[in-house]
Design a protein around this nucleic acid. Structure first.
Lengths: 106, 106
DNA sequence: CGGTATCCCTGCTGATACTG
DNA sequence: CAGTATCAGCAGGGATACCG
């Protein structure tokens, strides 16, 4: 575990937040903690998200190897999303952050 | 430590991110981990921030009781910013998040 | 020094309609 | 089912100039 101690490293926060700081990212990742989900399941489960935003966030997360996208050549088509190891590693952090919010915000 | 387990709680992420998910929030909080800072110190220390954004973020953080703002009636004026307890509580989380980024992103 | 005020602009976002 | 396409609107962010 490295401690943050120099100037340049601050910029890393902006990169990190670009990936998981999006409006919907954490909700999606959170839902995937409970296991694989199909596109339509996510669409129903994430509160108030719309198709376009869900697609966009999923692409973003796939691009950064936080989630996997698996396509099955069925009719109708089936696509399943699961967390990668990198994604799994986020679980304790996101939980801590959530708990911080619950205990420290109004 | 509470575990996240129901639907409504997901919305909390959007509230939390509104507060600490801003482009500059984490950098500012990170700098304050090392102790109190004056406005101009922050302006010099946060990479590429401009006055307007710094003011805005500081107000946001003060409003949510994450940092304190102390004004000294000197000439020229002096204003010091420090973390509150709520802010201090973020240190391990922000460190974990940073380390996640370092080890899991390219 | 520690901010305000103003302008402008990019880009995220949402709604809606359509497709393999 | 799992997306793509298109368009309009508005909030977020940067640059600059000014103020107590």
């Amino acid at each position: 575990m490295k401690k943050i101690n120099n100037f340049e490293e601050q910029c890393a926060f902006q990169e990190i937040l670009k990936i998981i700081g999006g409006k919907w990212s954490m909700s999606i990742i959170f839902i995937l903690f409970s296991g694989k989900k199909r596109f339509s399941e996510l669409e129903r489960t994430v509160p108030h998200i719309n198709t376009r935003m869900l697609v966009k966030e999923l692409k973003n997360l796939v691009a950064h190897k936080i989630i996997n996208r698996e396509v099955f050549a069925t009719v109708p088509p089936t696509v399943e999303y699961t967390l990668t190891d990198k994604g799994q590693n986020l679980e304790p952090i996101i939980n801590d952050l959530y708990n911080w919010g619950v205990t420290n915000l109004d």
